[in-house]
Design a protein around this nucleic acid. Sequence first.
DNA 1: CCATGCGGGCGGG
DNA 2: CCCGCCCGCATGG
Length: 436
Amino acid sequence: MAPEDLDSEDKEVLSWDINDMKLPQNVKKTDWFQEWPDSYEKHIYSSEDRNAQRHLSSWAMRNTNNHNSRILKKSCLGVVVCSRDCSAEEGRKVYLRPAICDKARQKQQRKRCPNCDGPLKLIPCRGHGGFPVTNFWRHDGRFIFFQSKGEHDHPKPETKLEAEARRTMKKAHAAASASVPSKLKESPETKSLPGETQSWGSFPLTWSFQEGVQLPGSYNGRLIANTPQQKSLNDCLFFSKSCCLGGTTDLADPTSTLGPAKLYDKCKLSSSWICNGGDLLHPVSGVFSDYGDRQTWNINTALGRQSLNDNCCPSYPFPLTSWPYDFSPSQSSAEPFPQQIPVEPPVAESSCRPLWPNPGSELYEERLHVDFNSCCPSSTCHSPQEDPFLLTYASHPHHQYSLTGKSSKWDFDEDMRGVGLDHYSNEMLLNLCPLR
DNA sequence: CCATGCGGGCGGG
DNA sequence: CCCGCCCGCATGG
């Protein structure tokens, strides 16, 4: 409302470009961290937002040298899929997160599909005029400006958290199996192979999925139980830590207008608490995630993808036992949530960050380990990672995408850039994943 | 091991 | 100049 002033300010806040000499400093409301920015988005985050500080994204973005120390540029690596386009149960597809490190990516390409053992292939991102989508980060004053160019033309890979969790699991699994034969929790079938791999079995992949499904329930319970709404929300967000980072627009964003209560509903709602950017999902059935604009079904999403920010919670099953995420300790605790939920992020400081932001990764990892035992709470949140890792399942999603947009990258894909970059075959995934 | 950043250098518009 | 990208180096978990 405020007439003129606001308008002008608003305009200023909306019209900036990452390359401008001066960026707006009269920002009234900062955005909640966006985990899956797509399609030429611009966001202004608080300089205290941990996710923003770390320039995180659930897309696999690698640093790109733009010869400008003031603006960090990152380009999308795409997603690693099974070259056989295999499907796990329920039509789940394998959408692994490309390793950011070139060397690790090459290794990753050499690995095999955790689901069918077929070769993996990297689908490069060509969403920006045939080139990878680029993200720009620039710190200025109390804000961190973000701008993305291009629209991802490929499915979402597992999130950083998911990938890390998978890795963690793998390690744990390996260790466990080594020491103890198979006892872990694996299911019968799952056994892992000695050596290298683990298979899913061991850990979860598959299972995870199922469990994931369950989670919701528990989650709900939890929520409800705890719950007062807010609390739930918090919990929800929390988990999200891993799951969700922070705010998303919906939640936190002022503009979005969803208040805590709604959030809560969302979380609760779903049995799937998975909320993906605005879309809710259904756990079992799958979720609708938005892939850009299109909707796809992605279990992944449902399960776990949410790491950073999606609004809600994650799903993720935990495979193993449950893990836990605990948030408590490590996090910086307090900070996180506060902001978000409130919906009002004060200006810069609002601080809003997502809660748990970033820790995500690291913290997250730590926690995971640590937690292993502890199991947290609600289970809910485990980390999403597990399942997701490997598979994301989408039933049809991709295809859709392909159709819609971009096309077939899948088919050919690698080639494209391939050569140059890497072809990546596939490897990483596997690491984590056990399937084999 | 690997994620991230940085920055030199190269090649193509 | 801008951009994409390769490569090595360094840091930190």
